[in-house]
Design a protein around this nucleic acid. Structure first.
Lengths: 342, 342
DNA sequence: ATAAATAAGTTAAACGGTTAACAACCAACT
DNA sequence: AGTTGGTTGTTAACCGTTTAACTTATTTAT
């Protein structure tokens, strides 16, 4: 492995000169002839700068660490992928690499701790949370990241105290789909959440309860179902629920995949969408464009949220010191899976 | 930022002792009492080891670089995501981090060069190719990675010379779906590829041609269509093709998304799947489980390919010097979208 | 009683770059 | 003649950790 010293020795100058030129081709501290000789030597030796030495010396790495407290495989979740796509697009454009660090730990807190331990040295961090995290764990994770003294932005995490940069998804903890169904005259509504544990679920359930209690039909705890974000589980849960609650006219699902599965379950129960039962999804992912009928859904703008988070982090890295909370509101995408009850 | 020196100074011992202990808690070169004091100091100072200094010193980083010659956003492609999910699962388990490095370059060769330039220092690499790459570019990229003298494994790349570790997807350049349709008696077949450029497309088209020429209906260049892996494009392409070729009884699509879109197009053309037209997809992705009727598809086992690639790389890192070509063959997943013509 | 082994450290060089401070030379200006 | 300024460099310290080689004191074995 060739080093700057070899190059320098080879052409008979000091390593400093080589370094200075390589970091600024326009420098006037190296003559034109010397520049040419350096270029040639770099080619001859197939020289590549040592990333670690450079980072050690300059205290910057052009690397952003992604902290995701999950033991599930990455890249298998629609929401996270959309977020990551946005993040990668922006960071790449500005020359930053993305680092995913592993953890063998089991709890959310331990995972972030371990990820940080191993990735110490990133210029900044993007802290995620998942459906598994409790607010307490989230808070601890934030403290942990704060300790690094590096800029970071949270994503997918409820609002916390003032001096943390956050991208907030307004519709994340709110059952906007249920509001839409209500507006369309539905009163017998099933809510299909992902996981039963975690902070998000609690918020969603509370919101649903508050909404339903305003109507005579009222709130029924048993009408909150859990599909684990999986197609199979959602299908079976909805099939049995439809038998138990034949009066159902609307289903609000917290993901498009669960919504698409619900539509299958409805069809296999001998009913049809939307004439018998209306369905609304969430995410406006590709799935919502491939169902029949086309799925109405809530677009959370995950990709844009990723872009914003990257922007905010980049700004902070560039010296902006104002803490920001970026609020992304969701928007309804009306397609063919919900009908108005008159 | 606290360093090993501060810690050492604080408790009045040499940095070496701290380092020795921190790297091996069971060492007998540090007394029990000193160990306790180090632990305490680490906590008090909230000390984290400097990743770069360590890597510089030990010449290893526990980082694997992902080289993807594409300017498209990552994490938006079913195939790549499945591959990455497999890779991440395995690498995380063995304590390796994953590094995605950016590039602003436009050509496939420049991208890999730039990615390598910036990520120099990874313990190993995973080299991908995309539909855009020509064989020539692929070969150059391989040469570029070879120069790093680091172990690497190619994925999604046709077989090249002997001393390159590769995971080969047997069904990647072959239209297995067409074979299945032929076996089921179909003779008027549309082939829906992704992109029109690139090595993969050429192979696929050749295979299709060879297959069709064995039958009286023969091969028709116009029946090879391009859906750009997008739902919208696939839909429109298939709609117009169905008008032009009403005799069509089977469509073979190179992705499940394009197949699901094709099913929409078929329905909107007033025909139905599979009674009028049979459809087969590829990837056995979640999409194939959410269509109606359920989509028959070719499972390429991308996730497993990712696992294998990671395994192979890890083996090589551990000292295994035997070059390997791992062959993954696809398998047919029969569901409800193809019918037998008698 | 003495040699060998063990425990508990220390020293100093090395990893490969970066950069502030210094220097030598020459030309130009006043 | 002396000052200023531009070119084209060099020197040496520093970034934070690791590790081979050395030291000293204390046990243990013969």
């Amino acid at each position: 492995m060739s080093s700057i010293k070899e190059i320098a020795k080879y052409i008979g100058i000091s390593p400093a000169s080589v370094s200075i030129y390589l970091n600024n081709k326009d420098t006037n501290r190296v003559s034109r002839e010397t520049k040419i000789r350096i270029d040639q030597a770099v080619k001859d030796f197939n020289y590549h700068k040592n990333f670690f030495a450079k980072s050690l010396s300059t205290h910057e790495s052009n690397l952003i660490g992604i902290l995701i407290p999950t033991i599930l495989p990455l890249f298998e979740n629609d929401y996270t992928n959309a977020l990551l796509a946005g993040i990668q697009t922006r960071l790449s454009y500005f020359g930053y690499g993305i680092l995913f660090f592993p953890s063998s730990a089991q709890s959310s807190i331990e995972i972030v701790k371990e990820q940080l331990e191993k990735s110490a040295g990133c210029d900044g961090y993007l802290l995620f949370s998942t459906g598994f995290c409790t607010m307490n764990q989230i808070r601890k994770n934030i403290e942990e990241v704060k300790q690094t003294k590096r800029p970071f932005v949270t994503l997918n995490i409820p609002r916390v105290d003032e001096d943390v940069n956050q991208v907030l998804l307004e519709d994340l903890d709110v059952v906007s789909g249920v509001r839409y169904l209500l507006k369309n005259g539905h009163r017998n509504i099933l809510l299909l959440l992902g996981r039963s544990k975690g902070e998000h679920s609690r918020y969603l359930k509370d919101d649903f309860k508050q909404l339903m209690e305003q109507y005579p039909a009222g709130y029924d705890d048993h009408k909150v179902l859990y599909g684990e974000y999986s197609a199979e589980k959602s299908y079976s849960v909805i099939r049995t629920a439809l038998e138990k609650y034949p009066e159902t006219t609307g289903i609000c699902c917290m993901s498009d995949i669960m919504a698409a599965s619900s539509m299958q379950a409805i069809r296999d129960s001998g009913k049809s969408v939307p004439s018998d039962i209306s369905v609304i999804g969430r995410n406006n992912s590709i799935h919502s464009k491939l169902t029949y009928p086309l799925l109405s859904t809530i677009d959370l703008h995950m990709r844009e949220a990723g872009l914003s988070a990257a922007n905010l982090l980049l700004d902070t890295l560039a010296g902006n010191t104002v803490t920001q909370k970026i609020l992304m509101s969701g928007s309804l995408v009306e397609r063919d899976s919900v009908r108005m009850i008159v």
